Amino acid sequence: MPLTIETCVARHTGDRKEQQDRVALFAHPTRPGTMMAVLADGMGGHTGGAMAAEQVLLKARQNFEAYAPQSETPAHLLEAIINEAHLVIKLTRFTSEQDPHSTAVVFMLQPGRADWAHCGDSRFYHFRGSELVSRSQDHSLVGELQRKGRLDEAAALNHPQRNVLLSCLGSEREPRVDHGRQLPLVAGDSFVLCSDGLWGYFSDEEIGGAVAALSAREAAQVLINNARERSDGYGDNITVAIIKLVEAPVTVAARQAAAVR
């Protein structure tokens, strides 16, 4: 059964004075069925975080448009985007008074496969229906404590140092880049990229349930609205990208052709 792609990106400034998250979806200029989603949560003073996040998007678009699978693997492409954006962000520190940093989640969809990479605590989720298949691991102090079994999920969401990152773009240390992939793809596969301003208010089950039950646009709206309600006036920037694979509708001509056989 052929698949079609349903997508949505959405942002909300939350209770901050400035929107420093960035998100984008773009198709490859010459390869049908190949697209990229990228999300970045910028940090670093007035306009500094927004500038850092913008560099992630610019580098993602440049490298993706030059992608040639005959000479470059998806993993290499995604890692190069993050590492090169990291270098550009570091260089901007010499030409500005800010101390810019950013997270990054980069996702590439091709016919029959999906690949992703991330650095920081912005998250990537893969659901099949409402069931969680995989979720990125936060490069944060709290994430590390969870991996060591010293914090559970509930305690992590309310930890006072939840926003302390161990790896990000623009820092002195080289960014940690984690990878994932899925092949083959089936109808019901959904992929979610989001900043901590969204995932910090939901369990994995809540996010998966909303994405499975609703269209991409409706799910984004419901999740953002609920995050705003749960933030009690202290919400961070909220950003989300949702990519859903659904069965392509059967046309009348296709049904008639099948009936003739």
Score class of each variant (00 low, 15 high):
Pro160Glu: 05
Leu214His: 15
Ala117Phe: 06
Ile238Ala: 05
Thr47Asn: 13
Leu157Arg: 15
Arg113Cys: 12
Cys8Gly: 01
Arg22Glu: 11
Ile224Glu: 03
Ala253Leu: 11
Pro100Val: 07
Leu3Pro: 01
Leu78Met: 12
Ser167Asp: 06
Ala210Trp: 09
Asp99Cys: 08
Gln62Thr: 12
Asp196Ala: 12
Ile81Asn: 02
Val88Leu: 15
Asn163Asp: 08
Arg16Phe: 02
Pro111Ile: 10
Arg113Val: 10
Trp116Ala: 04
Phe202Asn: 04
Cys194Gly: 13
Val164Gly: 05
Asp121Lys: 09
Ser122His: 01
Ser203His: 11
Asn83Tyr: 13
Ala40Arg: 00
Leu185Tyr: 02
Ala80Pro: 02
His118Asn: 12
Gln62Pro: 04
Ala80Ser: 15
Thr7Glu: 06
Ala258Pro: 00
Glu174Ser: 13
Phe202Pro: 10
Gly235Ala: 11
Leu165Pro: 00
Thr47His: 13
Gly197Ile: 03
Glu131Leu: 10
Asn63Ala: 13
Thr34Cys: 14
Arg217Asp: 15
Met35Asp: 00
Asp15Glu: 10
Pro32Arg: 08
Thr30Trp: 09
Pro249Arg: 15
Arg16His: 01
Gly233Phe: 08
Glu18His: 15
Ser136Phe: 01
Ala155Trp: 01
Ala52Lys: 09
Ala117Glu: 04
Leu58Glu: 09
Ala187Lys: 03
Thr13Cys: 13
Gln146Arg: 14
Leu245Phe: 07
Thr251Gly: 15
Pro175Ser: 08
Arg150Ala: 13
Glu79Tyr: 05
Val186Trp: 02
Glu65Lys: 08
Gln137Lys: 15
Ala24Glu: 14
Gln98Glu: 12
Glu54Asn: 14
Gly143Lys: 07
Ala104Phe: 01
Gly233Gln: 00
Thr47Phe: 12
Pro160Ile: 04
Phe127Cys: 06
Gly188Val: 07
Gly129Asp: 02
Gln110Cys: 13
Leu58Trp: 07
Leu193Ile: 04
Arg93Gly: 09
Ala154Gln: 15
Gly235Asn: 03
Ile89Lys: 01
Leu87Met: 13
Gly180Trp: 03
Val106Asn: 04
Val164Thr: 12
